[in-house]
Structures are given as C-alpha cells and as structure tokens.
C-alpha cells in the first residue's frame, strides 16, 4: 500500500510541476499558431517579464501595480517587435523569421541585464511553500497554487479565443493569412495582439518560476523544456501544450524515481527529450497537433 501511495505522490508532484512547463509552452504555441514563427525569444521574455516585475517591486511599488507596469512593458515590447522587426520581414521564409527571434532573445537578455543588473533576485509572492497532506499523500502547496493559476489562465485564453472578435481573428490568421487579408484583417494588429498575449503568458510564467527558483538567468533555460512539451503535445494546440506539459512533468519524475537507480540517476534532464523523439517517430504532428484537413 505504501508503494502505491509513494507512486501517487510522485505522479501528482510530477503533474503539478508539469503545469509550469505547460505555461512556458503556451507562449510558444500562441505565437506559432498566429504567425508560424517559432519564437526562440519566448524563454527570454519570461525572464525579462520576471526581471521587470521584480525591478519595479524593488522600487517600492505594490505587487499589483508592478504587474500592471510589467504588462504594459510587454505590450510595448509587442509593438516594437512588430514595428521594428517583423514588419520588415513579411514574406520571408520561416527560418529567417526564426533567426530574427534568436537575435531578439540575445537583445532582450542584454537589455534586461543592463536595466536590472545581473544578480539573483528573490521573489516572494506570499504563496505558501509547505507540504500538504491529502490523506496519506504529500503534495506541495506551491505547486497546487501554480497549477490553479495555469488552469485559470488557460480557461481565460479559451474564452478569449472562442468568443471575442480579436480571438477569432487570431485563429483565422493562424489558418490562412491571405484569407484574413482579403476580408480586411490587418495582419500587424493581429501580430501585436498575439505578442501581447504571449507577453502576458510570459509574465505569469515568470512570476511562478521566479518565485520557485528565484529570478535569475537560468529561467530562460527552463524554456528549453518547453520544446519536448510542444513536440509531444503538438506545436499548434493549446490543449496540446497543457497535456504535453503534464506528460513531461509526470514522466520525468517517474523515470527519475523508478528508472534512475538503474542508470545512476540524472534521467530527469534528458528523459523528456527522448520521449519527444519517440513521439516524432510515431506521430510527428504531436498528440493534439492540427492535422492538415484534407477532404477526399
């Protein structure tokens, strides 16, 4: 019986930490869906948002104000990215756009360091980080709160995409740029909107990760975990990002605990990538990836 409880504990812990991967993957998926760009800078955006938030907080602002200011900064960033980078790259091959986002990543990293310095900042949002006994199973309270935040965010995005005109326009542009142009949807509005939403997601991710690990540059590397998440879940699917994150989180913890002893540990770091490779071989579009609709 203890064996089972232990298994459940590892599983639940994994799932909960997986929601954090989902959060980062979500930002990638949004931009990829609307513009076909794999935004390498998403991880840096998470870091940049967290740094800005902590910076404003340390200036003495209350948390809510700091969040609003940071969000405004992310929206300005979205405008700037569209105006100064992508407007000049319409119709370039995807790989060129991808390269531009690599440049953007380094730029943002440098900018963040210049403004807010390089030391590690502690971020305490007052989320309790104690163990909580659910019957015989121990779970982290922090992870529970984080998971709830992610769930709320996803539900909100779902409503936004289904019911608002801008949300529908974003999905429309993701489907067919030309059709969107032909009915008068200005692509640059849509790009600014989607980068703003991705900036918002980055802010939430930055706050959660930042208060877990401290706000430091390794946060931008956490984003690398989003890659297997997206490969498993599918690059174009929001539910895919969620489920992918859960799978990665659960599987890496289970692998570490149950397979680790046989190979000397350290599985956690590479197991998700191996899983992603398997998925690529079996189902290249990912579990929820949109298959190209073909009528026969």
């Amino acid at each position: 019986m203890d064996e089972l409880y232990f298994f459940l504990e590892v599983l639940i812990g994994g799932l909960l930490s997986g929601t954090l991967y989902s959060l980062v993957a979500l930002g990638f998926v949004l931009i990829y869906k609307a513009s076909g760009i794999f935004n390498f800078a998403q991880g840096t955006m998470v870091l940049f948002a967290a740094l800005t938030f902590v910076g404003v907080l340390e200036l003495g602002a209350p948390a809510l104000l700091a969040a609003v200011v940071t969000l405004a900064v992310m929206v300005v960033l979205a405008f700037a990215v569209e105006r100064f980078i992508f407007r000049h790259m319409v119709n370039q091959p995807q790989v060129i756009l991808f390269m531009a986002t690599i440049g953007l990543a380094y730029f943002l990293e440098g900018l963040g360091q210049t403004i807010w310095g390089t030391e590690v900042h502690v971020l305490d949002l007052g989320i309790p980080d104690r163990g909580l006994w659910l019957g015989p199973i121990l779970v982290s309270q922090f992870d529970l709160v984080a998971a709830a935040v992610v769930a709320l965010l996803v539900a909100g995005l779902g409503v936004f995409f289904r019911t608002t005109t801008m949300g529908r326009a974003l999905r429309g542009v993701a489907d067919d740029h030309q059709a969107a142009l032909s009915i008068g949807i200005p692509l640059h509005h849509v790009w600014v909107a989607v980068w703003s939403v991705a900036g918002f997601v980055a802010l939430v991710a930055g706050l959660v990760w930042g208060s877990k690990l401290g706000v430091q540059f390794s946060i931008s590397l956490v984003a690398l975990k989003a890659i297997p998440v997206m490969i498993i879940g599918g690059f174009t699917s929001i539910p895919g990002a969620i489920v992918g994150g859960l799978i990665v989180g659960a599987s890496e913890k289970l692998a570490e605990v149950y397979l680790g002893p046989f190979v000397g540990g350290g599985l956690e770091n590479w197991f998700p990538y191996m899983l992603a490779m398997l998925v690529l071989m079996v189902r290249p579009e990912g579990i929820f990836g949109e298959k190209i609709i073909e009528r026969v």
Partner: peptide, 16 residues
C-alpha cells in the same frame, strides 16, 4: 478558415 466553424468564418467577415 478551415479550423473555424462556418459561422465563425462568417462573423469574421464583419471584422472591419
């Protein structure tokens, strides 16, 4: 817009 429903397609026509 293939992944949007017919009605969503129509509604987007009124975007402007």
């Amino acid at each position: 817009f293939e992944h949007l429903t017919v009605e969503e397609n129509l509604l987007l026509g009124a975007y402007t």
